[in-house]
Design a protein around this nucleic acid. Structure first.
Lengths: 238, 238
DNA sequence: CCAAAAGTGTTGCGGATACACCCATGG
DNA sequence: CCATGGGTGTATCCGCAACACTTTTGG
């Protein structure tokens, strides 16, 4: 019960898919503790802001926040020993940046690759930041399948196969372009722009260009089972 | 940027179903601010505990924590003005108590009814505690349909129709006992104890008694769509 | 004309709901 | 023997995954 100084920080695991691989924005610490290790962007919460405002402010120091398509709370990390020396409670966020955005970032900052699957998400993470990145990766995976969260990974306009590649990288398993298109159009998440993309150097039919109808999070599959009566196969798209 | 004293509190929305209605544990404030209004149990986070430990400690002051079958983080509530005068950040939790448990509670504390549906969850809530109860109610509803969370609402042993009544109250819509049993047994969440419950005063066939196979949270329906290939109808029960 | 990429048609499977029907008990 | 509540069998629906097939381009 010592009167150890306690503080509150906000951390953001900002993810994007680039070159078929999930990445997280991190900066390399230039001081002890954890010198040389990779830390998530963030910082102290101010008196006059809530954590949602704070995370946007902190991110603005690293990237152009207009590029961040979606932000949501992940949870609180509060182990008394999570940062040596001080008592620092962290509220962690998931942020998503579309794959075509390439915001300018500071010199000490880089996009670090995220391992798929279950284990540690990034190598050389500072403090408990790997736990946070894992939570972010898992949250993204889960929400891709029952929300329209794909909008936050994709460019404003895209072909189905480009979108498929994003889902493959984020989910960590193969995804059929055919079925992806059907699932997303059935739920009215996609709409064609009308234009087509030119085929690649080896030919092939030009791909139709789509966009997401909404660019804000929407739950499209609220009830897996135990739907309210009378909604038999209607999927409860509220 | 004033050096206003800031603190961290932990709050718990402890829910149970009683008499076919969801209820939340709350205590009536005896001081300003918000005198007479209903507040969630909780209190200051100590230096040597994380929020998970803290919420269990705080709950121990109100109820027998052994009765609490499940606890999980809901999120951070950090509006600078959420509590007048001081800067107080709250980490909120959802707690669940089985319907047959009736723990002793202090005089100022009571089980307050929760409104179903969308609007405000309880009347006369202190501070932003209604928002927290709403979040708890929504979380419970969502997880009932894709996890085994029912175990935290139900007694250790129960009949299907008793379980159905719990689901009806928690979900806010009718649930068929037939289908509830099939869904839960197909997913191997229920097992029969072998015994039967005596019929009511008006007769009827004696009901078989069941229990949940697991009494810890398990996700039973991870992928609504976009399952990994080769898992066609297998439901991905990992 | 062939290869490559995109997109559509079609089939099959399986879970979930709904409903009809059988079972066991009290009065 | 009837009413009441419990439980099972079965039909239907519908979404999704899988795959065959057609379309449109480049070489």
């Amino acid at each position: 019960m010592g009167a150890r100084e306690t503080g509150h920080e906000v951390l953001a695991a900002v993810l994007r898919i680039s070159d078929g691989q999930p990445q997280v924005l991190a900066w390399q610490r230039a001081q002890e503790p954890d010198l040389g290790r990779w830390a998530l962007p963030g910082g102290r919460l101010r008196d006059d802001e809530d954590v949602e405002r704070s995370v946007l402010r902190q991110l603005a120091e690293k990237v152009d926040v207009r590029e961040v398509a979606h932000v949501e709370q992940l949870g609180v990390f509060s182990d008394p020993c999570r940062v040596p020396g001080v008592r620092l409670i962290a509220t962690a966020f998931l942020g998503l940046v579309p794959s075509d955005a390439d915001p300018a970032i500071p010199d000490d900052t880089a996009w670090r690759p995220i391992a798929p699957g279950e284990g540690p998400a990034i190598a050389g993470a500072a403090f408990d930041h790997d736990t946070i990145v894992s939570a972010a990766r898992d949250r993204l995976r889960a929400k891709l399948s029952y929300t329209n969260l794909g909008f936050a990974l994709a460019p404003r306009e895209f072909t189905i196969s480009a979108l498929r590649d994003l889902y493959v990288a984020a989910l960590g398993h193969s995804v059929s372009a055919t079925n992806l298109q059907r699932v997303l159009t059935r739920r009215a998440l996609l709409e064609p722009t009308g234009s087509v993309a030119p085929p690649g150097p080896s030919g092939g039919r030009p791909a139709a260009v789509f966009r997401f109808t909404d660019r804000a999070l929407r739950v499209t599959d609220a009830f897996a089972v135990l739907k309210p009566p009378g909604e038999h196969g209607r999927g409860a798209v509220t």
